[in-house]
Design a protein around this nucleic acid. Structure first.
Lengths: 136, 136
DNA sequence: GTATACTCTATTAAATCTATAGGATAAATA
DNA sequence: TATTTATCCTATAGATTTAATAGAGTATAC
């Protein structure tokens, strides 16, 4: 299940991308427009900034803005920053690999086999979808 | 993230499928062989039986057995029984549809668009993968 | 009729997710 | 330089979900 964090984060990105200019937008405005609890959104935007998806500016006239053009923001990056690993089990994760402690041999593991296929199909979608694609 | 319930359930199915005959196998044997807490596995097997994936037999010589041949058991069915909806958000679920309360218009929702694509790619994998495919 | 093995309900412990509070910091500007 | 504005950061509370266990009930084989 997609977390609310990711859902809200995607909506915030889409909102920023849909705006004409790239001037900073305040948290309050995004929250209001997208029906997101402001304080929660605050922490989400922060992780996206730290994850390299957004830039920010403090003080009057400040806010958050897209670092790159929507066409250049892949869903792979967005999902990794917001939701974490794309793989459904750590033992098939490309960026967050971890061995299962209950499984003696990955190569003979049925779960492993299936989850590699699922991971690859999800990656295929995320890699070919940019922020620009989902706002139209 | 894949729940342990689903992971254990898949392993149990794979174990049953890998056996020569289709005689009932006891919970204790599956639990031992696959490193699964027995009581937990008990409840998982029960839901799989209720979900039409397994048959069971009580009393001496009893246990669980596959209802159909591994080639005929689609991952779509398995995942729905164990993990629930394949969609990551209820508003794009085929079998468990629910409207989002924070979203005024699905057709213009960026999350909706992306998650439909992800759902379809996962379905593509699950539909073309059977229990027989993942045990080899 | 007794041992066997699944069935069912209830409960607990741990982990994760969602949300909020409040003060710290940086920038603009008057 | 004082004030206002808006992000930054840490901590924490509450709710929900997941993982696991306990124990009594029920059907079957022999």
């Amino acid at each position: 299940m997609l977390s609310k964090k990711t859902k809200y984060g995607l909506k915030a990105l889409a909102f920023l991308a849909s705006r004409e200019d790239r001037k900073p937008v305040q948290i309050a405005e995004i929250a209001r427009h997208e029906n997101i609890p402001q304080k929660f959104l605050e922490s989400i935007l922060l992780t996206m900034r730290k994850g390299g998806l957004l830039g920010s500016k403090k003080g009057k006239g400040g806010g958050y803005y897209l670092f790159k053009d929507p066409e250049e923001i892949q869903m792979t990056a967005v999902m990794r920053v917001l939701e974490g690993p794309i793989a459904m089990v750590p033992c098939v994760s490309l960026n967050f690999y971890e061995k299962c402690d209950d499984c003696p041999d990955e190569n003979r593991c049925a779960v492993n086999k299936l989850m590699i296929a699922v991971r690859d199909s999800a990656l295929e979608v995320y890699r070919h979808t940019t922020l620009a694609d989902i706002i139209r």
